[in-house]
Design a protein around this nucleic acid. Structure first.
Lengths: 115, 115
DNA sequence: CGGGATCCAAATTGATACTG
DNA sequence: CAGTATCAATTTGGATCCCG
């Protein structure tokens, strides 16, 4: 009764197709974490988000929010269709599940960030 | 007795110069989290890291590790100086303080990552 | 006027070949 | 085996223009 040499080609947790890996890549971008963090208090309008995330461009704001909307992390809502167009972004329930993990990271950043 | 309109120019937690913000940006890059994660079990050599982080380039591996070394997150050690050069990277104590926060994120990725 | 889109320059990343 | 150099490809920033 031989022992087959399988070698268990360890499908590492970081395999590119792995859910964990993909989820991480959905967060570890320059702006997503900052935007989610800024949306935790509640719905925000683009202008407000630009203030809360200094340095972000109009463009990256729009693109990043749209990408996060595609991933189901935020929802976009139009408040007024009239000339002065008003729009609001808010975290979805899924997006809000990030609050705890993000708090852990922010806590670390506070405690050890200064190095 | 008038009320002065101060407006409290909220020095938001995400001010570009803020420690939290800078710490976050040191993590929220495409490769750092994955590399730190891969280094948690112990010291690793570049070749091994490339296997553990599929998709990373020789270049980004080197550059990212060097950047993390500059930030004090990892340490580089040369094992042999001879032609077949051997090198090892490992997390510093500071780098290891990321284990818990990272576990929180990875847990999220596992639970909600599939969406 | 606020939100978003477009176009082009600048910065990052990827792919590959090459050196110690 | 690690790391560097080089050039193409992708991504980001900046300024501007458009639409309601």
């Amino acid at each position: 009764m031989g022992r087959v040499a399988v070698d268990l080609v360890v499908p590492d947790v970081l395999e590119e197709s792995c859910a964990t890996r993909q989820a991480l890549e959905r967060l570890a971008t320059k702006w997503r974490v900052l935007l989610i963090y800024s949306l935790l208090p509640g719905p925000q309008r683009p202008a407000g988000l630009r203030r809360r995330v200094p340095g972000i461009t109009q463009k990256m704001l729009t693109e990043t929010l749209r990408g996060m909307a595609d991933d189901g992390l935020v929802a976009r809502r139009v408040l007024k269709a009239d000339p002065p167009q008003h729009v609001e972004y808010e975290l979805t329930p899924l997006g809000r599940t990030l609050e705890q993990p993000l708090a852990a990271i922010c806590g670390w950043a506070r405690d050890y960030g200064s190095r």
